[in-house]
Design a protein around this nucleic acid. Structure first.
Lengths: 356, 356
DNA sequence: CTCGCGTATTCAAACGATTCAATAAAAGCT
DNA sequence: AGCTTTTATTGAATCGTTTGAATACGCGAG
């Protein structure tokens, strides 16, 4: 089937003006409910609204922007859509933006710094009204921030923070999360607990570990440093499964004894479970495993994974609110302050843990 | 930390003009490498490019659009980001768009028709140059198409087609996929095979089933209709796990004998596996299970799922190419034709199937 | 010495909206 | 009746870019 190139010839404001017998200015005022609209006669308003609808008029967002400097769009940069961590956040962002008529412009950095920067440029070129960045350590550096500050674009990061900058941020309380995970295992009676810590460069790793240690200390539990492993700093997305698998295998090869394993994140936990299964160790009968994040897979895998939930969707939502608030403040010429929000994690009990 | 509202005062083309001593027209010509650029002296070109860079000039995409009618963005509408089916497609789309400098504007319909339509409106208002729709049956109807045709916007759908319309489409060859799945089980020696068919209203269901039947026929395999189940037409995203679980439980409750199960998709398969596990039936030792799609989870679950792979990322890419091609044709005032592409599925052997 | 042509650059009119200032009519006040 | 104020509408500039037409200048040919 062929598709020929007629000129679409869209309805412009002029057309509505002509058809209704008023001037473009009046049309604009009515349709935007501008301040001046309170002086418009209600008959006029009706006539205009009616003709606009009849002609199927749609404002040209670009033209509007040119004058009003509002693009009604928010740049959303993810480090990797493919990461199940990102999906719920994206949903949360979209969900927060929808009711206010903003659209997200989507950028996926593929875990590559240059791509990240290029996208940032592109988004700035498009004069997005705001920016939300779901980042990991690869993606954030100084150059970018300088640009953001210069342009004074409201921005928020999720899952990453840079103290001392103009960037707002939204994160889970990782320390509380770490505590929650260990507390759960401890309460089930586990004492010999293997821990797979996160990559050193990842911002979540340290506080999560701190939470674990603090809880251990509070109950006088001695964590065996022989059972303490660490994910490497590579950041190929699905590598954590592989690494969870391998680290666990090493643990088993070394004949370490443990009744529970606390993994840095869900995917790592899944890898660990696979290694345990391969060695004939049943989860949770012979060994409990707990993850972190509660990504979609966690509930579907067999056994369903007990984990510490990050409120990912909420995090997206919160970031949106922060950015929208800043945008509004900007329009009203008010100052706005940078906020750094920490949300509470939550224990989700499923099948991969049980009492000893 | 406070953030005050200085006027960003962006660099405009005028500024570059003033700073370099040439007129805005020249700047535009040089920076866009317009046809007239071949008359521009190379010294001029250099001076201009240098000052543009020095001042940090970025073209205002909106203003440019106003004149040239090119927004350099593509609307991407998904029926549900949360569905693991969508993620790789989204990646493919993004990946295809990136090298040509287009940005995707992201819309997620949440499986709601009204939301879908609203988003479509919003995207049209923004004068996206093209549209890619990842649809399921909920989302496509006539009203929408009328609008698309009126506006003559190049569009492609993924995972859905509407024959006889102006919409290009990209799909897997479902029939081949169905065949592939059954063929695999058959070759492993399975003869008593349970099949969980897809929801009636889903476009994939019928051809996939046809492929299954045709293969059965070709090897004189008799499919027991007592082992034939069907997912209901609800489309709550993660419900297929639930339904896979329940249908399989029913099968077991009815004491049906089967050595393999062919599920409509991976999530259903995971649900089935869970039900089998609960009944003490080991996969793949006692029963083989094969899925469809090869979503990310498939490789991570235990046992790793054997499945028929849809080349999702490629599908996204292909859709992009179709749309970009149409856009180019439109600019060059050529006609473009609607294409309907079917991509080949591929068997991915993992751990959930084994020979009898 | 004028004409035509290729080169190099600029003028000025769009594009489709918003918005401030201006106008005009009606109403209110003394 | 003359003045201000309120109500209702419009003119015209503006946003930053693109682009077809125009200008200016050499330069070789007639």
């Amino acid at each position: 089937m062929k598709h020929s190139h007629g000129k679409p010839q869209l309805i412009t404001m002029r057309d509505v003006a002509k058809a209704s017998g008023f001037s473009p200015a009046t049309i604009s005022i009515v349709l935007n409910n501008a301040p001046l609209a309170r002086y418009i006669a209600s008959t006029t308003r009706q006539r205009i609204e009616e003709t606009a609808k009849r002609l199927g008029y749609r404002p040209n967002v670009m033209a509007r922007f040119l004058r009003s400097k509002r693009s009604q769009s928010i740049g959303v940069v993810l480090f990797d859509v493919t990461d199940p961590f990102c999906t719920p956040i994206l949903r949360g962002i979209e969900n927060g933006l929808y009711p206010v008529g903003y659209l997200p412009i989507f950028a996926d950095a593929h875990n590559q710094r240059d791509r990240f920067e290029r996208y940032l440029e592109m988004l700035l070129e498009r004069h997005v009204d705001g920016l939300i960045v779901v980042a990991n350590w690869l993606l954030v550096d100084i150059k970018v921030l300088a640009d953001l500050n210069k342009r004074e674009i409201p921005a928020a990061t999720i899952g990453w923070e840079l103290p001392g900058t103009q960037l707002s941020s939204v994160m889970v309380d990782n320390e509380a999360g770490g505590r929650l995970a260990l507390e759960h295992l401890y309460q089930l009676g586990h004492r010999r607990i293997a821990v797979i810590r996160g990559p050193k460069r990842l911002i979540d790793s340290a506080p999560r570990w701190r939470g674990i240690q603090k809880f251990a200390q509070s109950v006088k539990l001695k964590l065996d440093s022989g059972l303490e492993l660490q994910l490497p700093d590579v950041f190929d997305p699905n590598s954590s499964f592989e690494h969870g698998f391998r680290l666990t295998e090493e643990l088993l090869r070394d004949k370490k004894k443990f009744t529970a394993l606390l993994a840095f994140d869900d995917i790592t936990a899944l890898g660990a479970i696979r290694a345990l299964a391969k060695a004939g160790i049943r989860v949770p009968e012979d060994c409990s495993v707990i993850g972190f994040d509660d990504v979609a897979i966690a509930g579907l895998s067999a056994p369903a994974l007990t984990t510490v939930r990050q409120p990912l969707e909420t995090m997206g939502n919160v970031a949106v609110n922060i950015v929208l608030e800043a945008i509004k403040a900007g329009h009203e010429n008010r100052d706005w302050s940078v906020v750094s929000q920490k949300l509470h994690p939550e224990l989700v009990m499923r099948e991969s843990t049980r009492s000893i």
